[in-house]
Every structure is written in C-alpha cells, then in structure tokens.
Amino acid sequence: MRVRDRLSAALTATLGYLWSGWGAVSSLLLFCALWEWGGQVYGTLILPGPMETFARLGAMFDRGMAMPELVISARRALYGLGLALGAGTLLGLVAGRSLTASMVSRPLVTLLLGMPPIAWLVLAMLWFGMGDATPVFTVFIACFPIVFAGAMQGARTVDNKLRDMARSYRLPWWMMLTDVHLPHVTSYLFPAWITALGTSWKVVVMAELLTTADGVGAALAVSRAQLDTATSMGWILAVLGLLLAFEYLFLEPVKRRVERWRTEVAA
C-alpha cells in the first residue's frame, strides 16, 4: 500500500513537472516565430528560418554525419565537466571548512572566473597540442571555479546551530556528513553544477572550432568556410537541444527530488 502510494505520488509529481513544461514550450515557440520573421527579412543565406534549419538537421542525422561528431564533443565536454565536478566539489568543500583556505582561495576563484576561456585555450594549445587534451582541459579550467565557488559557499554556510545540536547528540562523523553537511551543501552545489554544464558545452564547441579536426566545433568551422549557414545553424540547434534535454530531463528532476524539503508546499 505504502509503495503504491509512493509510486502514485512520484507519478503525479512527474506528470505535474512535464505539464509545467508547456510554459517553456510556448516561450520557445515564440522565439521560433521571431526567428522565422528574421529569416524572412534577411533571406536564407544570412539567417535560415527554423523550418529550414530543422530540415537540415534532420538530413544531417539521416546521412549519419551528425551523430559521430556529437558523440565526440559530448565525450570531451563530459570528461572536462566530470573532472571539474569531482575536483571542484572536493576541493571546494575542503576549502570551505577552513577560514584561511577560503580567504586564500576567494581571490583566486575571482581570477579564474574572470579569465576568458579563449585565453586558456591558447595556453592549452601550446601545452597539449591539437589533440583531445586541449578541449578537455579548457572545459575543465572553465568549469572548475564555478563548482569550487559553489561548494565552498555551501560548506561555509552550514548552520552552526544545527552543527552544535548534532554535536550535542554525539552524531558520528558519517552522520555529520550525510545528515548535516551534504543536504545543505547539495542545495548550493546543484545550481553550480547546472551552470557548469552549460559552460562545458559552450567551451567545448569553441575549443574544437579552433583546435581539433573532429567534433561539432570542427564541423562548424567547415560549414562556416563553405558559407553554409543552414548547416551551421543545424549544429547550433543540435548542441542547444542536447543541453536543454540534459538539463530539463535529467538534472532538474533530480534537483526537485533532492530538494523537495525546500519546495514542497504546505498541505
């Protein structure tokens, strides 16, 4: 009975979430309308409309030319992002535990955040050459400070009163971690992770455009050289579509699940 209740509650929540997507869909469609209008004013050479772009994207998938490039880019982005999430979260939490470490790292984070990814890219090209390592490193270094700052902020702001309470109940260290620190820190980490995800996609395409011979960025470079605006738009669309799908079909539901104590409305 309880399991069924829980299942039905989860189902209701999921359906409710999907239903709330209509607002997002209509705003996207509005954007498409604007885009179509722009396409009609400027002509297909300058700005192909949404219909044409979607058709081209479909054709690219049919010819088997889109998938391999997307997989390559996704792999690079996820490697870089994965490294940044791991290292950034871990080091950020450690830094947040110590006042000195957070004071030392704050200006460094500002420095790293302020450094344009293109500058890192130039350095990475010199250090790592034209292989996979260059885009992966650039993604890592662009995402790392975002995650680090989020984790540090989360660790710094754990409520001292709750910590005292936990100490007075003699909570063992693993409970301190799972019951006091992690739930609090997660609410800071998730937004940082989502921002990092968006950054990783943007940076990987940029890095590929300038350095590698494969991946979405490289394909974009080719279509640009051929003045093939429709194909360029197709690539852009593919990247955006993947980003939106990953964020709204995976990260956002996970976030809602993890943070239901925060958002649940009073019955």
Binding site: K161, L162, D164, S168, Y169, M175, P183, R262
Partner: peptide
C-alpha cells in the same frame, strides 16, 4: 546519555518530523 533541547527547535529542514525525532536513535 545527554540530550539537549535548545531555545529554537533546531530541526533539520531536510528531514521529516519523524526522522528528526529519530535522529539521536540513528546516532
């Protein structure tokens, strides 16, 4: 075995009332 009730309730916002009560037992 010492237990403390503070001036403010100091409950874990991410735990249900039941799990909050059971906190010391879990420890």
């Amino acid at each position: 075995r010492l237990s403390c009730v503070f001036q403010e309730p100091r409950l874990m916002p991410w735990k249900t009332a039941l799990d909050n009560i059971a906190l010391g037992l879990k420890a």
